[in-house]
Simulated scan of single mutants.
Amino acid sequence: MNISLRHLRAFVAVAEASSFTTAARQLFLTQSTLTKTIRELEQEIGLTLFERTTRKVALTAQGNAFMPVARRLLNDFELLLSDLREKSAGSSGSVYVASSLAFASCVLPEVLKRLKQDYPCIHVRLLDDTSGGVVRRIESGEVDIGIGSYVGAAGNKLDKRKLLSARLGVMFPPGSQLPTGPLSGPSLRDLPLLQDEGDTSIMATLAHSLPGLWLQVNSKITVTNLDIQFALIRAGVGACVLSALAASHPTARDLPYRLLEAVGLQRDIHVFTRRGVPLSPAAFTFLQVLEEVLPDIAFHPGVTLAV
């Protein structure tokens, strides 16, 4: 026979009550069953745990030494069960998220604020990357959830669901003389543009809609980090093609921004998960909170939420 939780609970109940009768009532057992359980425990460990008299039950020296051990084992087990219940309910656990920087900066602060408030035991590890990097991270299994535009070819390894569309536009340095009339795709060739890395969704969209653009633009600076782009624009180094999602960033709302009128110049943001791999309860909770928060974000007018 092995010592079980039944034996530990019986031992602690008798020790705390100093009575077999009271402990049996608390455990909803007959006194004979409880007595048998304690006898089994003492036989298994080879020690007498209780001194029994007609008037009281007291712990022996060995029983006193065993008491903190029994309590710790029971407490550890209860904590483990509680943790498992919380994880099963999605109220604790870890979730790994890779997101494009514009979405991470404009949307995820409100998502994480809500999570911290309602689900304080969920741990989120957040990584920012280009859209191509987000797809690679979710495809490789490095993260549970990816948020960005679809760049590259992941075949049938990913499931994706559209969250929003953001038109492209140009952000200009403060005090710039803005072009008159609609801002079209071809007019980009005349602007001092900062260039982006090739695996970003904006570069992919421009390459598809305006092939050869970068052969005609005199662009000598390539930068992908959104914060650095804002800093260079603010310093007057150049203008930059950015999505209306990026223009929604709180630190950039004072910078001049004009939407492009060309059809198809937009960035679609999706949430990616691995096909055939069930989401953990914590990841599922993260996505639920994201869906609840998204409609309340103050986006630039060029952003349209998916239906």
Results as ranks from 00 to 15, higher is better:
261 E>S: 15
173 P>M: 11
228 I>C: 10
246 A>H: 04
222 T>A: 12
167 R>I: 00
199 D>L: 01
225 N>M: 05
207 A>V: 00
156 N>E: 13
266 Q>L: 14
173 P>E: 10
200 T>W: 06
261 E>Y: 07
169 G>P: 00
269 I>S: 11
221 I>A: 02
265 L>H: 08
189 R>N: 08
254 D>R: 08
268 D>K: 11
243 S>E: 09
190 D>L: 08
159 D>W: 00
201 S>A: 15
155 G>T: 05
215 L>G: 14
181 G>T: 03
157 K>F: 10
197 E>S: 11
173 P>Q: 10
256 P>T: 11
219 S>A: 10
156 N>D: 13
153 A>M: 09
159 D>G: 01
201 S>N: 04
208 H>S: 12
168 L>W: 00
163 L>R: 09
170 V>A: 06
260 L>D: 01
248 S>N: 08
180 T>E: 14
206 L>I: 10
247 A>Q: 13
237 V>I: 15
206 L>Q: 10
278 P>A: 13
277 V>C: 11
157 K>I: 04
253 R>I: 05
194 L>M: 04
185 G>P: 06
262 A>C: 07
264 G>L: 10
216 Q>E: 15
267 R>I: 12
275 R>H: 11
231 A>P: 01
216 Q>Y: 04
259 L>P: 00
187 S>E: 12
195 Q>Y: 03
249 H>R: 11
249 H>A: 09
277 V>W: 07
195 Q>E: 13
248 S>D: 07
194 L>G: 04
225 N>I: 07
234 R>P: 00
222 T>G: 10
227 D>C: 06
210 L>E: 12
193 L>C: 04
170 V>C: 07
182 P>F: 06
234 R>S: 07
250 P>M: 08
229 Q>T: 08
260 L>G: 03
170 V>K: 04
279 L>Y: 09
273 T>Y: 02
204 A>Q: 13
242 L>S: 12
245 L>D: 06
165 S>N: 10
203 M>R: 14
195 Q>K: 14
240 C>R: 14
212 G>F: 02
228 I>Y: 13
185 G>R: 09
252 A>K: 08
251 T>R: 14
205 T>I: 11
153 A>D: 14
249 H>F: 02
159 D>T: 03
